[in-house]
């Protein structure tokens, strides 16, 4: 496709001309999975005053010489239909699961598989955070991966990472995977 046909907005995109590589990441998952807590942990902010998200939050995090723009969209059932408005031009999907909420494993699996089928997320790498590992009742990441049939994903890179957004444990490992993956992809 020629330069002229790509549309004006792609031109404007280049206008910013920043030297930093920008990466758009969308952070999704059921309500109470810990998306906003994870976002705040990434941005090194206080995680004690978080309330259920009615809209969306955005934070920009610098990592490995890249600027990660992370979009955290509310996960309540009535907001989920809005998710697909935020998927365009996404470089990476982070999907957060409450590892202790066994009753909703099926529900979260359905939502994830719907996302995977979205045209805008075609081939987009996905990182799954098996969150809340600090709770005694949390299922291990391997078990969750099996339940989600992750091994059947052939059209994209994927990774599941056990973590606790509250303590920060495992979060950095996930981010390292993201950065390595994006670098490989964009080169």
């Amino acid at each position: 496709m020629g330069e002229a046909q790509k549309g004006l907005l792609s031109v404007i995109e280049k206008l910013k001309g920043s030297t930093e590589q920008e990466v758009r990441i969308v952070l999704l998952g059921l309500d109470n999975a810990g998306k906003t807590t994870l976002l705040k942990t990434l941005a090194s902010e206080d995680v004690n005053t978080i309330t259920p998200t009615q809209g969306f939050n955005i934070k920009s995090v610098a990592s490995h010489g890249m600027k990660l723009n992370v979009w955290d969209i509310g996960g309540q059932r009535k907001i989920r239909p809005f998710w697909k408005k935020y998927l365009e031009n996404t470089d990476l999907l982070i999907y957060v699961i409450d590892s202790a909420d066994k009753k909703r494993f099926e529900e979260t699996g359905l939502e994830l598989s719907e996302l995977i089928d979205e045209e805008n997320l075609k081939g987009v790498p996905v990182l799954i955070f098996a969150n809340k590992q600090d709770l005694a009742t949390a299922s291990p990441a391997s078990e969750i991966a099996e339940g989600l049939n992750l091994h059947t994903y052939r059209d994209r890179e994927w990774q599941i990472q056990a973590c606790s957004a509250v303590s920060g444990e495992g979060v950095q490992d996930g981010m390292n995977w993201i950065c390595n993956n994006i670098v490989n992809r964009k080169k």
Binding site: L8, L9, T53, Q54, G55, F56, N57, I58, Y86
Partner: peptide
């Protein structure tokens, strides 16, 4: 507020269309 409302996104889309039209 720190949190964005969902309606912001629609308004941003409308804005994009407006600017694109004007500049074109």
């Amino acid at each position: 507020e720190d949190e964005n409302k969902l309606s912001y996104t629609d308004i941003h889309q409308q804005y994009k269309k407006l600017v694109e039209k004007l500049l074109e």
